[in-house]
């Protein structure tokens, strides 16, 4: 049975992104996934994600979240990394709002229904103000994982 911990663990969460721009943030989060063994070829994965950001004009939303994502064979298992940026980074939101909540989604090639379903559940939660507030206020990576686990009932 899939649980949230298959997708996101405290080790793939940081409450303090050092990155000063979107590309650095993507790389910083990808490193967390690489350390977990979810991303096998970080460079290629980051390239895919960055290219997609450029193509689509960025995944930043006006609510301050960004969801850079990439589906590539450089990913071995579906995974989610989360980073909070104190100053906010430009992910191309429509009104220029900097993104402070960054969800990096890694999806492997091919279909993996169950995991994709979980990812999409999380994506849906991002719409809710209360969820975003909780993520902004959480003190530790583990607290963030707990919030996600709690909110995204499986």
């Amino acid at each position: 049975m899939t649980t949230i911990s298959d997708l996101i663990t405290a080790t793939s969460v940081t409450t303090d992104l050092h990155a000063t721009n979107a590309e650095e943030a993507i790389d910083e989060l990808a490193r967390l996934l690489e350390a977990d063994g979810r991303v096998t070829d970080r460079q290629r994965y980051v390239e895919t994600v960055v290219a997609r950001e450029a193509e689509t004009g960025g995944t930043g939303m006006e609510s301050g979240i960004a969801i850079p994502h990439g589906k590539t064979s450089a990913v071995s298992a579906p995974a989610l990394a989360f980073g909070r940026s104190a100053k906010g980074l430009d992910f191309g939101a429509g009104d220029g709002t900097p993104s402070d909540l960054i969800f990096l989604i890694a999806a492997p090639e091919g279909e993996d229904d169950l995991h994709v379903r979980v990812l999409s559940r999380i994506a849906r939660k991002l719409i809710h103000e209360s969820f975003r507030t909780a993520l902004r206020e959480a003190a530790t990576p583990q607290a963030i994982v707990d919030i996600i686990e709690q909110e995204v009932e499986l």
Partner: peptide, 13 residues
């Protein structure tokens, strides 16, 4: 196109 994030978020919204 990837069908994971944006479509779901838009649906929820």
């Amino acid at each position: 196109p990837t069908g994971i994030a944006h479509s779901e978020m838009a649906a929820e919204a």
